[in-house]
Computed example of a mutant assay.
Amino acid sequence: MRVAFVGVGAMGMPMARLVMRRHPVTVFDPDSARTAELAAEGAGVAGSAAEAVRGADTAVVMVATPAQLEQALFGADGVHGGLAAHTTVVLMSSVGVDCVVDAGLRLEALGARVVDAPVTGGAVRAVTGELTVLAGAAPEVLDEVRPLLELMAARIAHCGDRVGDGQAVKLVNQLLCSVHLAAAGEALQFARALGLDPEQVLATIESGAASSFMLSDRGPRMLKDGTTPVRSAIDIFVKDSSLVLAAAREAGAVTPLTEQAAELFSRASHQGLGRDDDSSVIRMFQKEPH
C-alpha cells in the first residue's frame, strides 16, 4: 500500500513513523524541517499535498484546525489535485462534525472514499501506537484501511456508518478532556495552597477514584519548573472546546462545565499562553501575575 501523509506535526510525525515501518510513505507539511527529519528516516517528501497524494492508495490527513483542513484538502495544490478514483482519504483531524461532513461530500464527489477517523490518546500514545481511532465510515470502507489504522492505534472504534460520526464521538471525548485538564490544574494548585507537596499528592491520588488520563499525563508536566516542551498547545483546547460548545448549542445540550473550561483556555490564550503546552493551564490558578 502506498500511503500519503499530509500533516506531520506533534501527532502526525510519530504516526507517520509507525506507518513507515510497513509501507512506503510520502509526506507533505508546510514545515520543511519536519519533512526533512522524516526523509532522513526513509520517507518520500512531496512539495505539495497534491503531489504527495498522486499515486497513493491511501491519503492520511492530520492537521489541527478546520482552516488547515480546508487548505490541505481544497487549497491550491491541495489533496483534491492528486486524487485518483481508487484513493481512500482518511481524515484524522479533530475539526468538528460539520467541517468533516462537508469535506467528505466534496471528496466523494471527486470519486474518493472517505473515512472520518479522529484519534484520542495524545502525543504520548501517538509515539507508542496506542491511540484510539474513532471511526465514522461505511463498514467495508473502514475494513479496507483497518490494517493501516492498526499500525497507529491499539483500538479502532466504529462509531457509525456516516462520515461525521467519529467527529461526534470525539466532541464528547474533548468535552471530558477539556474539563479534566482544567480540573487537574485547579486540583494540583489547590494542593499547593494547602501547603502540601503537589508531587506527593499527585502520586497518591492518581491511582484512586479521582484518577484521569489528563491528571496522570499532564500532572507531572504541570509541576515541572521551567518551560515544558509543547506536546499539545493551549490553543488546541481553545479550538476543541469551541467546537464542543458550538455543537452543544445546535443540539440544545446543557454544558456549563465546558463553558467554564473554554473561558479558562480562552483567557490563558489571551494572556500569551496559547502556544505553550496545555499543562500551562495550571498557571491560571496561581495568584501571582501570569
Rank of each mutant, 00 (worst) to 15 (best):
F5E: 05
F5S: 05
V6F: 07
G7C: 08
G9E: 09
A16Q: 05
V27Q: 08
F28L: 04
P30H: 08
S32N: 02
A33I: 01
A33P: 01
V53G: 04
V53W: 08
R54Q: 13
G55L: 14
A56G: 11
V61T: 00
T65P: 05
E70G: 01
F74L: 03
G75H: 08
A76F: 05
D77Q: 06
H80G: 00
G81R: 03
H86V: 00
T87W: 02
T88P: 05
V89Q: 01
L91F: 05
M92Y: 01
S94R: 00
S94W: 01
V97Q: 05
D98H: 09
A109M: 02
L110W: 01
L110H: 01
A112Q: 03
P118S: 00
T120D: 01
G121T: 02
A123E: 09
R125H: 14
V127T: 14
V127D: 13
G129S: 12
E130L: 14
L134T: 01
L134F: 08
A135H: 06
V141C: 08
L142W: 10
E144R: 12
R146T: 11
P147Q: 03
R155C: 06
C159H: 05
G164W: 10
G164T: 05
V169A: 11
K170S: 03
K170M: 03
S178K: 04
V179P: 05
H180S: 10
A182P: 06
G185E: 09
L196R: 12
E199F: 03
V201Q: 06
L202S: 10
E206I: 07
E206L: 10
A210Q: 15
F213S: 09
D217A: 13
L223I: 05
P229K: 01
A233T: 00
D235Q: 05
I236W: 02
V238S: 11
V244K: 07
A248W: 12
A248D: 11
R249W: 09
Q260G: 12
Q260F: 13
A261E: 11
R267F: 12
S269M: 12
H270S: 15
H270N: 14
H270P: 05
G272K: 12
G272C: 12
G274A: 10
G274H: 11
D278W: 03
V281M: 07
F285G: 12
Q286L: 08
K287C: 04
